[in-house]
């Protein structure tokens, strides 16, 4: 474990905590895409199929349980909680899941390191995670007033991806050379999707203005 990986995991954890804080204390999910949250629940479910079969470390297992538990509870809150669900704007969050899920599944079946169920599911989760933020980014663009917590949430998610790239560069020079081009390409694509958001995020921060993405 290097410092970039740890920092990446912590920003990822903070992003989830910020979102749960917004949902749990303010009882609002305004500006949050249920589609993206459902895709993340699917990402973690398919990626962590090895949770009970391959033990890596206690840290690893605990973090996996946190990401699984938090992603499903966020989906539950937005769909079922009697107050939270009222703030969900269904008409704005129109992105179709299958536009992302089906191409990722097809890609994972054909492009993977090993054609086994677990490996294909793991590869699928990488492809899907890369694009799962799209419904959220589309929703942000449609939202005239992006509240602070939503902005922080997306920023932390983007920071997590950027730190993972630094982690891979570090690992590349310090560890035995593994084949990881699938992780790299999916990860770089995922990080690039945040580039536009980062630009406007820093602009609003520099000019001390409210964050707003151009339509």
């Amino acid at each position: 474990m290097n410092i970039f990986r740890l920092a990446g995991d912590m920003t990822h954890l903070f992003s989830v905590l910020v979102l749960l804080l917004k949902i749990h204390t303010i009882k609002s999910c305004a500006g949050i895409s249920l589609k993206t949250q459902e895709l993340y629940a699917l990402v973690f479910t398919t990626r962590y199929l090895d949770i009970f079969t391959d033990f890596i470390s206690l840290y690893n297992t605990v973090m996996k349980l946190i990401f699984l538990g938090s992603s499903f509870s966020i989906v539950w809150y937005i769909r079922r909680h009697k107050i939270v669900r009222r703030s969900y704007d269904k008409d704005q969050d129109t992105f179709r899941h299958y536009f992302l899920v089906i191409p990722c599944l097809v890609l994972a079946v054909f492009i993977n390191h090993k054609f086994t169920f677990k490996e294909v599911m793991w590869t699928f989760s990488l492809y899907l995670e890369a694009v799962a933020i799209l419904p959220q980014l589309v929703l942000l663009q449609r939202t005239r007033n992006i509240d602070n917590l939503t902005g922080q949430y997306v920023f932390l998610l983007g920071a997590y991806r950027a730190l993972y790239i630094l982690n891979w560069i570090y690992r590349h020079f310090t560890e035995p050379h593994y084949v990881h081009w699938i992780t790299w390409i999916a990860g770089v694509v995922q990080t690039l999707l945040y580039a536009d958001f980062f630009y406007y995020y820093f602009q609003s921060w520099k000019n001390n203005e409210k964050l707003q993405l151009p339509a």
């Binding site: 990986r5 090895d50 890596i56 973090m63 990401f67 090993k114 793991w122 593994y178 084949v179 992780t183």
Partner: peptide, 10 residues
């Protein structure tokens, strides 16, 4: 020598 990647990340 290149080996398959371990799934040790989150």
């Amino acid at each position: 020598k290149k080996q398959p990647q371990p799934h040790d990340e989150l």
